[in-house]
Amino acid sequence: MKKKQDFDPFAPANRVNRVEVSPFLFSRVVSKIESRREEKSHREVMGWKGAMTGRRAQGVSTSRQFTWIFTALLVVFLEVIVIRGALQGPRSGEVAGAEWMGVFLNQTEQLYDHEN
């Protein structure tokens, strides 16, 4: 019977042979690198950054575009206010205030009625 000190628990390691790596593996690594590179460039073309880069290449300034869009939206907003005001007709501030207070008083009265 083997004594405890004779037993070498690392001995089985000597029975494991070294294995040669497949010669086709490197071509798989290269194709993975290429597919990642393609994916990256595709993402750049399709993404926001890519779109902006494309526009810059066409000579379109992005900051100038944003300024125009912002100005157009501001003009539309102001026109809506003006048109609404014109439709409601001329009103004095006093009338508008009284109307608002009226609504407020009515609501308070309703609340008072409801509680009693």
Partner: peptide, 19 residues
């Protein structure tokens, strides 16, 4: 599935790798 392990040692080494 270790190609460096010969068939005659497979069971012994499977146990050893388990440890």
């Amino acid at each position: 599935n270790h190609p460096g392990v010969a068939l005659e040692y497979k069971e012994e080494l499977k146990q050893w790798f388990g440890w």
